[in-house]
């Protein structure tokens, strides 16, 4: 059996974490090639519905990355992000999905290294967890 190569989705806000990801690229910081970024304007525009959709259809992990608290381009956006996703995690746990398959973190536009670190660690966590069991479940 070949090594498990997880498929991971990341939502990055335009102003901080997407820029941080760009900086990681410009700095040629190497990281595992499992994460696919969707750009949104603000982390608070990420509907938990997307996360539920992705995980229930077999995506192995979802990252939601925003600006640091206090740095939101839209003032209070990420406060709402920080309020929603812990609950989304608990709901995952309620139905038996490992809650660490969803991660919320903050990456600023200047934190290319942090982006690399978050991606590398998350891919490591998901590899350890193994494939999303729902990938095999046929509804």
């Amino acid at each position: 059996m070949s090594e498990f190569n997880p498929t991971i989705l990341a939502f990055c806000c335009n102003w901080c974490s997407y820029a941080g990801a760009d900086l990681a690229g410009v700095s040629r910081l190497q990281m595992p090639p499992n994460v696919h970024v969707i750009r949104v304007m603000c982390s608070a525009a990420v509907k938990p519905e997307y996360v539920f959709k992705a995980l229930s259809q077999g995506i192995d992990g979802v990252l939601v990355l925003g600006c640091h608290i206090g740095d939101c381009h839209y003032m209070t956006g990420n406060h709402r992000t920080a309020k929603r996703f812990p609950l989304a995690q608990k709901i995952l746990n309620d139905v038996g999905i490992d809650e660490t398959r969803l991660k919320l973190d903050w990456v600023s536009a200047a934190e290319g290294e942090k982006f690399q670190q978050v991606i590398t660690e998350f891919v490591g966590v998901i590899k350890k967890l193994g494939p999303n069991p729902l990938r095999e479940v046929k509804f």
Binding site: S56, I91, V95, F139
Partner: peptide, 12 residues
């Protein structure tokens, strides 16, 4: 059946 996201979204 609609799968897990249906029920998780409703729960949320």
């Amino acid at each position: 059946p609609p799968g897990l996201s249906f029920h998780m979204i409703r729960t949320f």
